[in-house]
Design a protein around this nucleic acid. Structure first.
Lengths: 340, 340
DNA sequence: TTGAAAGCGCTACCAG
DNA sequence: CTGGTAGCGCTTTCAA
């Protein structure tokens, strides 16, 4: 814990007691007025006095004290290791936020970079969230789920590559994504298929599984699968493209649409035609892919909408006896365009 | 008392009192052991007993209770209305998160969609953050800053289009961005300049200011500035491109690189050559721009690094008497490539 | 209609 | 070395 200077004692933060004193009433009355408690009736003049006192002091209730007293929070925790980049997660996140807010939850994205899975779960549990929606950048273990539930979380939802015991899991089958791409490429007659492995560490868990799925799909078909390290910059792409002909590949699954754009450009600059020389498949079905020429074939992931997920969370929170554990797998399929 | 197995679905959340009871010590001792308080020395056997009891109960301290007692939190609040999209903010955010974590802050992104500026400031103040770093998607008013400071925030930093009184402001001069783009285009001989106005509401405050800056730059030069509504999808872009020749424009500032890519593609599909027929300038200097053909000219914004911003926050928090209010304007300049 | 007081979980002071 | 205990700010029951 870092040692912070004491908060200004001179201009200290006003409490409900200060409001009560200024309004000439008790703390209880202040609470009743400011929370519009319907169980008790407070006279209009008193209400006004309290409101004015609160206003003039700049009183803001202390969320920690309130939730301590209440015994629960309305926090929905969205752990975020890396900020999900791109249009794919972006819209989803915004939707989810909005929907949860409409349901009167306090949405908190808690950054947990550099924590192990169980450390992270503990850190989240300290906030006593009523629900946790994890996006799989951080692995949530069964033990972690247990810690969260024991700390009072009424819903734990994971949206990741694998289902997690104890949590309501929405499985985004990363192996399946790799498999879909490679099956598609094999179907188009390709036999030597590169699979991009981004060097960005946050993407490693995804790309490793996609590679595994790609291998499974190629198994026994006579096709070859070749991992290709690639950083998200032009130099790296140019270097890869420069040794492309030596690799003897006729297709590549580029991890996502952005990497696909990067690599496609480098290959084109190297004089390699797409899809004749090399077929390219991206992932996420973003706008980029439709704007590229040739138009990019891509793996579409049928992500649940933010609204639906928010409703799922809300149902689990309100359910009488915890969440019925449930596992859904998201569909994935290839959108075939011109690059393959 | 029954010993609870790990997977026991116990209704009540264990507290430090439960740990104390199980370990046969007082709550104070539990606190000392689990916080490694150096002021007191606890015997090793006692420590072990406490640790084991905590472990077996799945005890997790209650952050709200702790910060209530401590009188302050170590929360740095990052309000996020819309999730900043794209590589531009993405890396910045990740950096900032990481750097703040290294400095032992609890980073909380608090979603405040659909709240007015003062409502939002109040909601943030309820969490008693030690610092707030606002990204200008939500306007922070001087009054809002005041509310936050009064609630104990020791640093309020805004990163937005304008400086905010009372806060440490990093000004990303939106007018200047529009002006830079238009000055550049005028310098390239363009006289009829479109300025894209994204239909996405979250971008409106930015694009309106950029348009204003564009107009100022064109004023008295004989150049004409024309706002162009555009949604972030192909249909909208195609529709705009279809009536392009009728607009009589010879240049366009496309708000950002993504809109530039979208519009450039639509114009090219319409048979309009770039830059000869129409010059295009984007903004943010992202990877996309370098991959496009022709390569995209763009307005580069010299954003502070996440590390630097984290250090700024930390300094302000630790400063003996609040933050010295300060205003910095970020530099912007045009990176000239092939599209203009 | 209002007030007094208990107590949420935790830490820090002060006795033993 | 360890335990008792006060009190952080708030809500809510019970009493006046």
């Amino acid at each position: 814990m870092n040692h912070l200077p004491e908060q200004s004692a001179d201009r200290s933060v006003p409490t409900s007691a200060d409001v009560a004193r200024l309004a000439g009433v008790s703390r209880a009355t202040v609470s009743y007025v400011l929370n519009n408690t319907s169980a008790v009736r407070i006279s209009e003049p008193t209400r006004r006095k309290v409101r004015e006192a609160a206003e003039s002091l700049g009183y803001v209730p202390h969320a920690a004290a309130r939730s301590l007293r209440a015994g629960h929070t309305s926090i929905v925790l969205l752990p975020t290791a890396r900020v999900p980049s791109g249009a794919f997660f972006g819209r989803f996140f915004t939707e989810l936020h909005e929907a949860l807010r409409r349901l009167d939850y306090t949405v908190v994205q808690y950054g947990s970079l550099g924590l192990g899975p169980d450390e992270a779960a503990r850190a989240w549990a300290e906030l006593r969230p009523v629900a946790v929606v994890s996006f799989g950048e951080i692995a949530l273990t069964p033990h972690g789920v247990n810690v969260l539930k024991r700390s009072g979380a009424r819903a734990v939802v994971t949206l990741g590559p694998e289902c997690v015991e104890g949590a309501h899991s929405l499985v985004m089958d990363q192996r399946g994504i790799g498999a879909r791409a490679v099956e598609h490429l094999i179907g188009r007659g390709c036999r030597n298929i590169g699979v991009v492995q981004p060097e960005e560490p946050a993407l490693a868990p995804f790309s490793a599984l996609r590679l595994a799925g790609a291998r499974t799909a190629a198994d026994g078909t006579g096709a070859r699968v070749e991992p290709l390290a690639l950083a998200c910059d032009e130099k790296s792409a140019a270097a890869l493209a420069a040794r492309w002909r030596g690799l003897g590949l006729d297709a590549v699954f580029a991890h996502d649409d952005e990497y696909a754009m990067l690599l496609m450009r480098a290959l084109q600059d190297e004089g390699i035609r797409i899809p004749e020389g090399t077929a390219v498949v991206g992932c996420d079905d973003t706008l980029i892919g439709r704007l590229l020429r040739p138009r990019l074939s891509t793996v579409h992931i049928d992500l649940v909408t933010g609204q639906q997920l928010a409703e799922l969370v809300d149902r689990a929170v309100r359910a009488p006896d915890g969440t019925g554990e449930q596992h859904d797998v998201m569909e994935t399929w290839v959108v075939h365009r011109e690059s393959s």
